[in-house]
Design a protein around this nucleic acid. Structure first.
Lengths: 147, 147
DNA sequence: GGCGTTCTCTGGAATGATTCCAGTATCGAA
DNA sequence: TTCGATACTGGAATCATTCCAGAGAACGCC
């Protein structure tokens, strides 16, 4: 009876990649896993996590994967001014970010108002706007108290 | 009667610097002038403008001035992801930016709603928020039509 | 199951904006 | 006018990211 179910189901990450028309590779799977539960990781964080997972992997392989996945909409790239880029798997929803001026810590914020009032600029200067990005700046609890 | 007014009034930039507690130097005045009518200039743009104005000036002098002026609140620094930082003299008002994905062109947008509903996040995670930054992304008319 | 095309990964070097450093020049208060 | 603090010079360094050419792996097709 153990073999009644035809095959081991492919892991969800596998499906995601196929669904997006991307080849399934070890590095890409490892990148997705690395970001699971570690939102707002830098490319460097991801490189370390992927190497802990797979062994030797080149920096470019990770950058390429991050690019491919971001372009396919499987992850989102955000770049706080003055900090390296950060990646997250939470996509498709309308959420924003708080960045700490002290340590660079990033936290998610759901849109303050539910729908998107600020997401339609008053005057577009003829631009075809496709995305509104809101970043809050401040100090995290740690940096606000610390020396 | 011509000499009734005691002295030639200091240029407004001069006053601005003194008012902010900054020393008045040629480079700083030239940086402010360079940004006049050329909002959203890059550091490189400013270096070129300052050199056209004063002659030989080091890159660091311009970066130092930009930093000092930005810290003093006399200009604002904005850094669209993937592009060099840009500087503008329009400060203190609540305005945002549209950035072209094609050419990097930046335009000003007044807050879509007048006051600031989006500027108060729903949950701050304990952060002391002091600034909300809204960036719209899209294509400028030129890039939307061009090849 | 093997084959070939096409995309991905490796390793190393390059880029570009920005910053660091030590020494010299300048600003402006006394 | 002098002096201390601050700004500027020139050159080298940093850091995230990208470019490059070639070796390797995925997967549609026979």
């Amino acid at each position: 009876m153990a073999h009644a179910v035809a095959a081991v189901p492919a892991p969800p990450e596998h499906e995601l990649l196929r669904g997006a028309g991307l080849r399934v590779t070890g590095v890409r799977l490892a990148v997705l896993r690395a970001l699971d539960g570690h939102e707002h990781s830098t490319a460097d964080d991801v490189v370390r996590a992927v190497r802990a997972d797979l062994g030797a992997v080149s920096v470019q392989a990770v950058y390429d994967s991050l690019h491919a996945l971001a372009t396919a909409g499987l992850l989102r790239r955000m770049e706080p001014a003055g900090h390296p880029a950060r990646y997250e798997r939470r996509v498709g929803d309308n959420h924003h970010h708080i960045v700490c001026r002290g340590c660079g810590l990033v936290a998610d914020v759901d849109c303050a108002v539910g729908h998107s009032p600020c997401l339609t600029p008053s005057e577009t200067h003829g631009f075809a706007v496709d995305l509104a990005e809101v970043t809050f700046w401040g100090l995290c609890p740690e940096c606000a108290n610390g020396p």
